[in-house]
Design a protein around this nucleic acid. Structure first.
Lengths: 191, 191
DNA sequence: CACAAAAATGAATCTATGGTAATAAATTAA
DNA sequence: TTAATTTATTACCATAGATTCATTTTTGTG
């Protein structure tokens, strides 16, 4: 059972020839809760597809503070886009918040895939368009919203799995402290 | 003289047949300083390429506050990505900060282009990768940096044309008030 | 279960940045 | 050039959210 192939097949038709090739380059891995999938000193250029479980990508400052870039569940991609697509050396880690199963694709293999199968390129181009819109929206949120409003937005955007994620990580996604988030939550219970 | 064609030709080879087709769908427009290129109630889905001058895209809240999403000069793209690529109705405007010359491509025409000429799709896919890395980087800046540090980053990222942009717009890009920016600048002169 | 570790909450300051308002400087228009 | 308008600066007070530190609650493990 390969959820990634299923995911592709939802949108593009895949010949058995392509399917075989894909199966060769897709690496399936499973992780336990808390396990690190990609560490911040890695130079690996990989695309990560989540089949099950919940993952988180985050940046860690010199003094140990963590900032969450993204959460991801079933059928989401999560990767270190700065390492993948720019020369900026980033220090992003990806960890598994729950037991998880992921499929990992090496950048080189994906690049080959684009060349050999234009349908993948089109597929990915559309994916990227969606991602750009999402990132843009997040930037606007960060610019315009208060802590409480950002939390609202988060609850809406991640309603599917908000409950799995510890509050201190939600706070690190919103750019606020766990204490602030706690205060906001308290306020809400009152009202 | 069509700078957009030159821009394409830097990366992909363009037959005279494609060139003709492109010339048909590329609309050249010039704007004076302060002119609005795309207004926030427009539903137009357009890609905008800057040939000369400096443009700015921004979001305006109900109470009139402006938040700058992006600046763009020569050979940059600037568009309302949320309108282009998601159903989220956004209220983004694009204005010309200087006299400018731009090329406008309708979304439909671009989509056709992808279908008919895979090289464009590949080209755009790579563009999008870069853009994703840039947006990711901005999100990290907004999450981790102080006002002063964000200003530093801005001066680095936009060093080419920092001087053209009024400070109150820089402030709106950083997510701070003009007064705060002024304070930061004063500090720097002192030191 | 019981203990240890991690996470969440709470309360008391502190501080960076916001808001307001007045003035000065710069730009634009006449 | 001058007047009008826009932008930038300054100062003073207000406040959202940070920081610090203690306490409680939850989660994980032998």
């Amino acid at each position: 059972m390969n959820e990634l192939l299923d995911y592709f097949k939802q949108t593009i038709s895949i010949s058995s020839e392509i399917e075989n090739k894909l199966s060769e380059v897709i690496k399936e891995k499973t992780f336990v809760k808390g396990e690190i999938i990609l560490s911040d000193n890695s130079i690996k250029k990989e695309h990560i597809f989540v089949a099950s479980g919940c993952l988180r990508s985050f940046y860690k400052t010199e003094n140990g503070k963590e900032y969450t870039i993204q959460f991801a569940i079933n059928n989401w991609w999560i990767s270190d886009y700065m390492t993948l697509y720019s020369d900026a050396k980033s220090s992003i880690s990806i960890e598994s918040l729950t037991p998880s199963k992921v499929f990992i694709l090496d950048k080189n293999n994906v690049d080959k895939l684009y060349k050999e199968h234009p349908a993948f390129e089109a597929f990915q181009r559309k994916n990227f368009e969606k991602r750009i819109a999402i990132l843009q929206k997040r930037i606007l949120s960060l610019l315009t919203l208060s802590a409480s409003e950002k939390y609202d937005q988060f609850l809406k955007d991640y309603s599917d799995f908000e409950k799995i994620i510890p509050n201190y990580q939600i706070a690190s996604y919103l750019g606020i402290t766990p204490q602030s988030l706690s205060r906001i939550r308290k306020e809400r219970i009152r009202n």
